[in-house]
C-alpha cells in the first residue's frame, strides 16, 4: 500500500511535467489547427536562454520573466517569417518546415551550449515540505504553476474578446475574416502564447530531467499523449490527461512486471491508441458536430 501511494505521488509529480507540456500542445493546436513537432525544441531553446541569463548573474524571476517575454516574441517572429509565406501550402509542407525548425533549433542549441548535461535551478525550496519525502517542493510548485497557467488560459479563451477571436480564427479563418478579425495576427499570437507556455514548461521540467538539447523529445511525446487523452480541444482535459499519463506510467512501470523501465515510452503509445480507439476526440474533447 505504501509503495502504491508512493508511486501514485511520483506519478502525479511527473504528471505535472506532462500536463505542462500538454497545455502547450493544446494551445498551439487551438491556434493553428495542427500540431507543431518543433514545440519541444522551442521549449528546450527557451530554457537555454534562461540558463544563459542565469549564468550571466540575473536573478531567477528576472530571467524567468525575460525568457517568457523573449519566447513570446520569438514565437510571433517565427510565425510571421517562416509560416506566413507558406500559409496556403499543403499541410505536409508545414510539417516539413516544423521538421526543419526542429533540426535548426536542436543543432544551434547544441553548437552554442554544447551537448553536455547542465543542471538547472528550481525557484522552489529544496528541503522536503511538511517533512514528507514523497513529493518535493519543486513538484508541488510546478503543479501550482501549471494550474495557474490553466486558469489564465481559461479566462483568456472563454471570457475575453481576444480569446474568442483567436478561437474563431483557428476554427474557420474565412468566416473570421468576414467578421473583421485579423486572422494572420491571431495565428501569430497563438504561436507567441504557445512559445511562452513552452518556455515555462521547459524551465519547470529542466530541474528534474537536466538541461540538454535532446531533453524534450520523450517529454513531448508524453505531453502529446496527455493532450490526446484529454482531448486536443480542451486545455483542462489536457492537464488532467497529462497527470493521468504520469500516474499510469508510474503505476504500470511498478506493478506490471514486463513493462519495467524499458517500455515506459511504449505506454504512452498504447495510451494514445487506446483512447483514440474508444473516443477519437479524447476524454474531454468536443466533437465538432456539423451538418452536411
Amino acid at each position: 500500500m505504501e509503495l502504491f501511494l508512493h508511486q501514485l505521488l511520483a506519478g502525479i509529480a511527473t504528471g505535472g511535467i506532462y500536463a505542462c507540456m500538454a497545455l502547450a500542445v493544446v494551445m498551439i493546436y487551438q491556434s493553428i489547427d495542427h500540431f507543431n513537432f518543433a514545440q519541444g525544441e522551442m521549449a528546450m531553446f527557451s530554457t537555454y536562454i534562461a540558463w544563459q541569463l542565469l549564468a550571466w548573474g540575473w536573478p531567477y524571476w528576472g530571467a524567468f520573466a525575460a525568457t517568457v517575454a523573449l519566447s513570446f516574441i520569438g514565437g510571433v517572429v517565427i510565425e510571421r517569417t517562416l509560416f506566413k509565406p507558406i500559409r496556403n501550402a499543403p499541410v505536409l509542407s508545414h510539417i516539413v518546415v516544423f521538421i526543419a525548425m526542429f533540426s535548426i533549433l536542436n543543432s544551434v542549441a547544441g553548437f552554442t551550449w554544447e551537448y553536455t548535461i547542465k543542471s538547472f535551478p528550481s525557484p522552489f525550496p529544496s528541503e522536503p515540505l511538511f517533512g514528507n519525502r514523497l513529493i518535493s517542493a519543486h513538484d508541488l510548485g510546478m503543479i501550482g504553476i501549471t494550474v495557474v497557467l490553466l486558469v489564465l488560459l481559461y479566462v483568456l479563451f472563454r471570457h475575453t474578446r481576444l480569446g474568442l477571436a483567436m478561437r474563431a480564427a483557428a476554427a474557420n479563418p474565412e468566416s473570421a475574416r468576414l467578421v473583421g478579425i485579423r486572422v494572420g495576427w491571431m495565428v501569430a499570437l497563438g504561436w507567441g502564447l504557445a512559445a511562452a507556455i513552452g518556455a515555462i514548461a521547459g524551465m519547470m521540467i529542466a530541474p528534474i530531467v537536466f538541461l540538454e538539447p535532446n531533453m524534450m523529445l520523450g517529454i513531448l511525446l508524453y505531453g502529446l499523449a496527455g493532450a490526446v487523452v484529454g482531448g486536443l480541444t480542451s486545455p483542462v482535459g489536457a492537464v488532467i490527461g497529462g497527470f493521468a499519463v504520469g500516474i499510469v506510467e508510474n503505476l504500470a512501470g511498478t506493478f506490471i512486471p514486463v513493462i519495467g523501465k524499458e517500455l515506459k515510452l511504449t505506454i504512452a503509445l498504447v495510451l494514445i491508441v487506446a483512447v483514440l480507439m474508444i473516443k477519437p476526440s479524447g476524454l474531454f474533447g468536443r466533437t465538432a458536430v456539423s451538418r452536411v
Binding site: F35, L221, V228, L269, I272
Partner: peptide, 14 residues
C-alpha cells in the same frame, strides 16, 4: 489526419 499522425509518431518513437 492529425490523430493518425500522432499515433504513428508514437509508434516511431516506441
Amino acid at each position: 489526419g492529425l490523430y493518425l499522425a500522432l499515433a504513428t509518431f508514437a509508434l516511431a518513437v516506441a
